[in-house]
């Protein structure tokens, strides 16, 4: 089986007595959600192209516990966290990269107190580094003349103060990056955080993702760039609601960079 040599799991590597440089934490959305799986594949292909030594956990990965914690279920969160930490420490994982800002935040900020300390990077930070090191290069002008607006994920931006990495990756695409009126620290939430993804919204006069999509549409974009699988879903739904799905695409930064690689 060719793929097992391409993208191994930690257990497959361990059987060979090997360890990867970095663990790609795929996350539940990245593993199961059809749309998010495309992001996972795009990012994995970029890692392969850059010849990064990486592995995934596969069936040994389990929810970080973030949605349980934000719902108020600290027991379930810590059960999940401790189980995951046991696995991660068992494989002596040092470095983790993930395409989900919620996993990123939890692994980075909430696991150390429970015995799991790792260097955790969001995939936009990792991609930025690969570009800087010349391990990835943008080829051709696929996005030349395209208007891109970037939606900041709350758990990358306000939660962890990372506003520049995704923008630096986007700036390599030779596209026109147009900021929304509220961006960076003032960026409006897509509406999915705090476990809203898993429930109907409380009654109000509007859905949050519609508000955010309207803000994005004000920039007259060709592409709405996202950096979170949940934001991606919310913004995609918003674009559909506005009947713009033929004209505007919502894409993860990893997908954009992958297209620019002409893979």
């Amino acid at each position: 089986m060719e793929h097992t040599t391409n993208i191994p799991t930690l257990s497959e590597l361990a059987a060979l007595g090997k360890q990867p440089e970095v663990l790609f934490w795929v996350g539940c959305a990245g593993s199961f959600d059809e749309r998010a799986k495309k992001i996972t594949k795009a990012f994995a292909q970029l890692l392969l192209k850059a010849e990064v030594s990486f592995a995934v956990l596969g069936p040994e990965e389990s929810c970080t516990g973030d949605p349980a914690k934000r719902a108020g279920n600290e027991f379930l969160f810590q059960m999940q966290a401790m189980t995951n930490i046991e696995v991660l420490n068992g494989y002596e994982v040092k470095k983790i990269v993930t395409t989900c800002p919620h996993c990123f935040n939890t692994l980075k900020n909430e696991y150390p107190g429970l015995g799991g300390s790792y260097e955790v990077m969001h995939h936009t930070q990792f991609l930025k580094k690969l570009l800087e090191e010349g391990r990835l290069n943008v080829e051709g002008g696929v996005f030349e003349g395209k208007r891109i607006t970037f939606h900041d994920p709350c758990y990358l931006g306000r939660a962890n103060n990372e506003y520049e990495a995704p923008r630096e990756v986007l700036s390599k695409l030779e596209a026109e990056l147009i900021e929304m009126k509220s961006c960076k620290a003032k960026g409006l939430c897509c509406g999915a955080g705090g476990t809203q993804m898993f429930k109907e919204a409380e009654s109000g006069n509007k859905e949050i993702n519609i508000s955010r999509t309207e803000q994005a549409l004000e920039t007259k974009p060709d592409i709405i760039a996202a950096a979170c699988p949940f934001c991606n879903t919310m913004m995609t739904d918003g674009v559909k609601n506005k009947e713009k799905e033929g004209k505007i695409v919502v894409m993860d930064i990893a997908e954009l960079l992958q297209q620019a690689q002409d893979l």
Binding site: V26, K37, K41
Partner: peptide, 9 residues
């Protein structure tokens, strides 16, 4: 959890 890996190949 590894379905995406199969699909990639």
């Amino acid at each position: 959890r590894l379905a995406w890996r199969e699909e990639l190949n």
